[in-house]
Amino acid sequence: MTAVVPATDQLAAVVRRVSGVCAVYPAGPIVATAVNAALGAVTQRAHTMPTVLIEQRADGVRITAKIGIGATERSGDVCSRVHDAIAAHLLQSGNPPVAQIAVIVASIG
């Protein structure tokens, strides 16, 4: 592994700092299936999930951030800012090849 990929915690902090973001939710399909499987032992799961999802693929790194935004914001603007902040952070931290940066608005207000 040559490219340095930042940790999910660092990225989550970056996303949280973006103006207009009021929540960062656990992202990613892997998490969702684990949740369904764990139904029955349902407590505490929010705290053990990774927040920003980082996947290393052949064509580069894929980042997925799921956010909640404030009611007074335009979602397109906030998404762009989050995207740009993630891109800038990747650039600073080793500039790995990027396959995708996904930003999902899951709640507003």
Partner: peptide, 24 residues
Amino acid sequence: PLAHPSPTARLVITEGAVRGILRE
């Protein structure tokens, strides 16, 4: 989808969030 100039960007809002703002 929400538009963004970068080809590697995938910006979206969920249908659930949109229904939320409609209710709101």
